[in-house]
Design a binder for these strands. Structure first.
Length: 581
RNA sequence: AGCGGGGUAGGGUAGCCUGGUAGCCUGCGGGGCUCAUAACCCCGAGAACCUAAUCGGGUCGGGAAGUCCCCGGUUCGAAUCCGGGCCCCGCUACCA
């Protein structure tokens, strides 16, 4: 392999979207890893390569749970989401998430876009109406989704069964099957009222969607199989409208007072957020270059629960619009992150939330640990034990210590100046082995296998450590300063590769390293070039440190304290812990 | 219930499509090195168990013939292919 021999030099154009968090509460680590964090890492990789990328997401704020929460707190839904949106936006900044636009579904641009978009579906004949009978709570004056009705399960007699499914026996239910049904909010008896709803006629779109899924070879296996399974059973019409007040008004003639089903509008946010971003840049019409030009690759990052909306529904709607939207390139879907083997659960306090996490460790530590355990292929269990091992043994010992032994050696033995050198066979062998791993990491990044991409970069540090042990520059320098210089120049080259490959995962630490090592601002292809002799390393100090068992115990105590404080908050926005920075 | 994914040393994961040495990381034991953050490098045991002895572990002796969730099949040969089953997770269209 030759230096500079890297594939794909041409500048590509991308839209990266991560699933919109529902801001009823602060997301937990499981929510973060599959969607927003993964999308950020991939986006940073693309930027490092010099690709043209727009990275968007936003707060999903409509829908019944938020409407009900606000009702119970005696405030308007918008007040709740105004506050939560600001908090969550701030938390993502603290997590070093580099959105071009993190917006919200209450954005005017979004609302206008959604209304116009659905009118196109209507005009194109993909919308029909049907009358349904739905449960309604006369006391709360709210239409009740299935799971907001509780009653006695007709099969097992469990008296807190929800209208969609009985948690006790697991059987699927319908609200009408429940014995003694009650409103989940106030407990009063719901009435059944007739209402008309507007449906998206997915049956007409089924063949085109199937073709899209079948021909899309970039979809992860879980997304592909799940989608093909749904298509095999046949797509059914899906209601676009709801009777909620909190949402985007349905634009259809005769649909006054109704709102659009949150999922169908939220997925359009990827487009509206792009428009909003480019409008703020003063060139709104550019959005068509991103969404209508077949050269663009649109990629979504979601958890596995989100697959149907991104692989079936959104593509179906894009087709139905009649506009020449570029079809999504892929949907990078992850499995679930479990917490100590169990599902994250807010009510049972199982898990760690993204506000608390930052009070315990720096964002880069978390980002490293989470991507290192990214649930690709199967559910993966997060455990504190494993987390400490990864930080102490991999991040600190293998990576951090390698970087530090190189920089401190140059600092002390070469007077802070990068030495020159001419590589011998052994040096070249190690350099090329490292470069091969760098190249392999690039291949994994290209396939959005972020965990494997990271593992390959970690290997470079292992190679570097082995290299130093074999060449022993601390011995060489006694007799042959030039050769010691060669080894250190080459080792610093490996540090450079590392710092580039790790930047998408730990941008802050790597930028600190770039300054310390005198690399300056780097791009992906710079990894193939050795550092410049004569540049200065300065202020060398360890980038990472270990977490002792005592510190871990203190962390757990701190987490307890934070939670006790959070519990005292009355409103959702007072149940959040923001680190002072 | 239906559909989809998964089950591999103590923990975490690769291999499965395309059958043939179970790879890697961590942890554990031993050795080396001294530039470095008690860091680094190399070697080894560990993916079967039971019994005796012991506070327990290491360890010693004996038995048994096992091995990638279990049972069966195909094959010279199965983690891999086929059939059946168990368990975990997701989705099932009105939660988001």
């Amino acid at each position: 392999m030759l230096l500079g021999d890297q594939p794909g030099n041409d500048r590509r154009r991308w839209v990266i979207g991560s699933a919109w968090p529902y801001i009823y509460t602060v997301p937990h680590l499981g929510n973060l890893v599959g969607s927003i964090l993964s999308a950020d890492v991939f986006t940073r990789y693309l930027r490092l390569r010099g690709d043209d990328v727009i990275f968007v997401s936003g707060s999903d704020e409509h829908g019944t749970p938020i409407e009900v929460e606000a009702l119970q707190l005696g405030i308007r839904p918008r007040e709740l989401t105004d506050r939560m949106h600001e908090i969550i936006k701030r938390l993502f900044e603290l997590w070093e998430i580099g959105f071009d636009n993190y917006t919200r579904t209450e954005s005017e641009v979004h609302k206008e876009f959604v209304k116009g978009f659905f009118m196109k579906l209507y005009d194109n004949g993909y919308v029909f109406t049907k009358e349904d009978e739905v449960p309604y709570c006369p006391k709360d004056r709210i239409y009740l989704p299935d799971r907001f009705i509780i009653g006695t399960c007709p099969y097992c007699g469990y008296d807190k069964a929800r209208g969609d499914q009985c948690e006790s026996c697991g059987r699927l239910l319908e609200p009408k099957l429940l014995i003694n049904p009650r409103c989940a909010i106030c407990g009063s008896k719901p009435t059944w009222v007739k209402t008309r709803h507007w449906y998206l006629d997915l049956t007409k779109l089924e063949d085109k969607v199937r073709k899209y899924v079948e021909e899309n070879t970039t979809l992860p296996e879980n997304a592909r199989q799940m989608s093909l399974g749904m298509l095999k059973e046949g797509l059914k019409p899906r209601a676009i409208t709801r009777d909620n007040k909190w949402g985007i008004e349905a634009p259809f003639p005769g649909a006054e007072g109704k709102t659009i089903y949150v999922w169908l509008e939220a997925v359009l946010g990827y487009i509206s957020a792009t428009i909003e971003y480019l409008r703020s840049k003063g060139n709104e019409s550019e959005w068509k270059r991103y969404w209508l030009d077949p050269g663009t690759r649109v990629v979504f990052f979601v958890g596995k629960d989100n697959i149907p909306f991104h692989v079936i529904l959104l593509p179906a709607m894009l087709i139905a619009s009649g506009d020449p939207y570029v079809m999504p390139y892929t949907t990078a879907s992850t499995e679930y992150l479990l917490f100590e083997g169990k599902k994250f659960s807010k009510s049972q306090r199982i898990g760690v939330w993204i506000d608390e996490a930052l009070a315990l460790m720096p964002a880069d530590y978390w980002r490293f640990v989470l991507i290192y355990q990214r649930p690709e292929g199967r559910d993966t269990s997060f455990s504190w034990h494993q987390t400490l091992e990864i930080i102490n043994s991999i991040l600190n010992d293998v990576i951090g210590n390698f970087i530090h032994r190189v920089l401190s050696f140059i600092s002390m033995r070469f007077n802070e100046e990068v030495p020159s050198g001419s590589l011998g066979n052994s040096d070249i062998k190690y350099r090329d082995e490292a470069l091969n791993h760098f190249r392999s990491s690039e291949e994994h990044y290209e396939r959005i296998e972020l965990k494997d991409a990271l593992l390959k970069i970690v290997e470079i540090a292992r190679i570097g450590n082995r290299y130093l042990n074999e060449r022993q520059p601390w011995e060489l320098i006694k007799s042959n300063r030039n050769e010691a210089g060669t080894v250190m120049l080459n080792a610093l080259h490996m540090v450079k590769m590392l710092s580039i490959g790790l930047w998408p995962v730990m941008p802050k630490s790597m930028e600190d390293l770039w300054v310390m090592a005198g690399f300056g601002k780097l791009t992906w292809k710079d990894a193939y070039e050795p550092p410049k002799p004569g540049t200065r390393v300065s202020n060398v100090k360890p980038l990472f440190r270990k977490i002792s068992y005592e510190e871990f115990k203190e962390m757990m105590k701190k987490l307890d304290d934070i939670r006790n404080t959070k519990d005292k908050g009355k409103y959702p926005w007072t149940q959040v812990y923001i680190v002072n920075q």
